[in-house]
């Protein structure tokens, strides 16, 4: 695996913006002033990091609870490894799924290899959405479960050092 060409300026730009892009008319110029670069360089670096996938996107991160989506269930599915990528793409395309991943099983404790997070305004709404996934996956599901979150114990963002 080749190491992505990220240097100290790239890290400094991320460190300066991971708490948020300035909500000012010229956010890139304002970031540039903080990292001792110029605006065009900051824009070029962000553009390159987006292309390389080091920055997934520049966007808004909504708080589900404040949007009224107070119930969340982690739906988990045991599907054939030969089908999981195809099925994961289908489930991930559902507009109520916020995260959809393939993860390893941990047998015998955990037989599930497909994870899809579902949010809703009520338990019933989450259950209805889970039922939609059941319908979509049909006979490919060998086993499934849903893990409701009952408490947030800790929530700090992922950080990188500058």
């Amino acid at each position: 695996m080749s190491r992505p060409p990220l240097d100290a300026l790239d890290r400094a730009i991320i460190a300066a913006t991971q708490g948020g892009l300035p909500l000012t008319p010229t956010p890139y110029a304002d970031v540039a002033a903080r990292v001792d670069a110029d605006e065009a360089e900051v824009i070029a670096r962000l553009s390159r990091m987006l292309e390389a996938g080091a920055v997934r996107r520049i966007g808004a991160v909504p708080n589900h609870y404040r949007l009224g989506l107070s119930h969340n269930g982690m739906t988990v599915w045991d599907v054939d490894d030969a089908e999981v990528d195809r099925l994961g793409e289908i489930v991930g395309a559902l507009d109520f799924v916020t995260h959809c991943y393939r993860r390893p099983r941990a047998l015998p404790d955990w037989p599930y290899n497909l994870f899809a997070m579902v949010h809703g305004r009520s338990r019933d709404e989450v259950e209805a959405k889970r039922a939609e996934i059941v319908d979509l996956l049909g006979g490919f599901v060998r086993a499934s479960d849903i893990l409701y979150s009952t408490r947030i114990l800790k929530k700090t963002g992922l950080r990188i050092a500058g």
Binding site: L6, T17, A52, V55, R56, N63
Partner: peptide
């Protein structure tokens, strides 16, 4: 939207793995 907490934040989302993490 940020002040009221509707948005946790607005800005670049980085992939920690691409930064060696």
């Amino acid at each position: 939207l940020v002040a009221s907490g509707v948005l946790s934040r607005f800005g670049p989302m980085f992939d920690a793995e691409k930064f060696g993490g």
